[in-house]
Design a protein around this nucleic acid. Structure first.
Lengths: 288, 288
DNA sequence: TATGGATTGGAATTATTATTTCATATTCCC
DNA sequence: GGGAATATGAAATAATAATTCCAATCCATA
């Protein structure tokens, strides 16, 4: 009877992406109601993962039995095993970014392809983003934005690994027509540039362990001139923290010896755009 | 009997974070077995979300009834409603980054606090990372890494918005002792620098719409010298694509007018570290 | 338009799973 | 150390959910 329905030769999709592809391939050849639930499944994968056969069937507008036929047509032996795939998807994507990162690190160590390296950096970035959105102190954010919004010129201070963030901040401030000055290491004029800063200005300083000595030195000297500093750094022991009016602790995950910048970037952009908004609101605009 | 157990005055935790806090607060005062399952729940939230009362109890080393008592002690009326919280957590975190981004955009438009802006950038970064890890072409990655690994000097070419990525690549290449040359816009010597490149070298070029004319011009001129180009850009219509031996399409989500860089960064780092590995493997090393 | 095969709906059945109950053990306080 | 209160284990029970079955319907083809 049902022994010889097309379930022998075809592989049962074990992961969501394969399943998705399989469904899309067969889309045309599926009976109406089965197609209906197939579409619903791809559109609402979470519902499949958590719902019961009855509830899913109802929200897709079919009978529970149809749902089971759908699963069987794909080679599963019932709804439950189809559901496993949808659950696995949530498991993988979600919670275990940390563990996943661990696994990927091991994998990459073991010399497994370049895809693993890429996945590692993606996982590191995601982990960092998750972390920061959990730990960011909202009050600090408000304080920092107020402080920066009052500044005549915003100085942006960062070297080496943090420099890309600084350059993005400078780019964004420029686009928002907010006067700013990037203090690079390239030209040897840092000391002079810093000398121009006054207490009416402000600084965004970014540095992570091992802290670039130049950054620390410049931060010290500028804070001694009474210029308020907003710092982004990685621990309360950071030398930057002691010079700063407001500081953020950002823990970036690393992979293959390079730390992610994603969390720092997100915070940097929030500060920048936040300052832009604040200035627009208070109607206090300056020339770029 | 059980009507007046402490379930009236205390709020039932509706979201995972509240639940977590509640559990941690009471940790000390919980009976042994209940504490055991409480710890297990916080350590393996996914198991709670997907398992059955029996399976969870088994893997925590307690009886199913204990699990239910645990739920009731927290104010839930049974295991099922406790489980809902764990499922909701997966739902929220996962699928809906896109929708969440939409919501946040609307919220930020409406002038809702700076936290919303920050969340928006985090969501944009996450969305971009999800996208790229789905769409990245593994073969392209291999090709690009092989190509770059053979180069004597790697030139890194990017302006404006893409410049932070370029500067991070240059930093990382430097740390890996791979000879490289960053082509900035600052110094006006780009034409001369480019003139030094030979077909034995290679270029990483990064540009997104609206493409910086200088980047395109420089890419054209360098490709005419026979130097192979690896491009990171945002569509197959990108002018960069036509000059490139290998090119990657990276779609970054944007928020408040600024696109995320997280996906581009992850790809850039994978390329960089990939090249480092490849050189180490082939034993073909060069001086920095 | 009749006929066979595939598809579907809906209820009956079976399986699984949560919950309750009760006997036993442990803990805490006097 | 005795006794009450609390906690725990194990199995019985109730609830819920998946699956199957069969009759009705639809659809293509002769």
């Amino acid at each position: 009877m049902s022994l010889d329905t097309a379930t022998m030769d075809e592989r049962v999709p074990r992961d969501f992406e394969t399943l998705r592809t399989t469904i899309l391939e067969r889309r045309e050849s599926l009976p109406k109601r089965i197609a209906q639930i197939a579409a619903h499944a791809l559109d609402n994968p979470d519902d499949i993962a958590f719902g019961t056969a009855a509830s899913i069937a109802a929200s897709a507008g079919v009978q529970p039995s149809t749902l089971i036929r759908f699963a069987q047509q794909l080679g599963f032996d019932g709804f439950t095993s189809l559901q496993q795939v949808f659950r696995e998807r949530l498991r993988e994507r979600n919670s275990s970014y940390d563990e996943r990162l661990q696994a990927l690190r091991a994998k990459a160590e073991g010399g497994a392809g370049h895809r693993a390296i890429f996945d590692g950096f993606v996982a590191a970035a995601s982990t960092s983003l998750n972390d920061i959105s959990r730990t960011l102190d909202e009050a600090h954010l408000e304080d920092a934005i107020s402080l920066l919004a009052k500044a005549e010129t915003i100085y942006v201070l960062a070297k080496r690994r943090s420099y890309p963030v600084a350059s993005y901040i400078a780019y964004a401030l420029g686009k928002l027509k907010i006067r700013n000055q990037l203090i690079e290491s390239a030209a040897g004029l840092n000391a002079e540039m810093i000398g121009f800063a006054t207490p009416a200005d402000a600084v965004i300083a970014i540095s992570f362990s091992p802290y670039a000595p130049a950054t620390i030195e410049e931060a010290r000297s500028i804070s001694e001139q009474g210029v308020p500093i907003v710092a982004i750094t990685d621990s309360s022991f950071s030398p930057l923290a002691q010079f700063a009016k407001v500081w953020f602790e950002v823990a970036e995950a690393d992979f293959a010896g390079f730390r992610s910048l994603s969390a720092t970037m997100a915070l940097a952009m929030a500060l920048t755009v936040g300052v832009g908004e604040k200035r627009r609101d208070t109607g206090r605009k300056r020339k770029a």
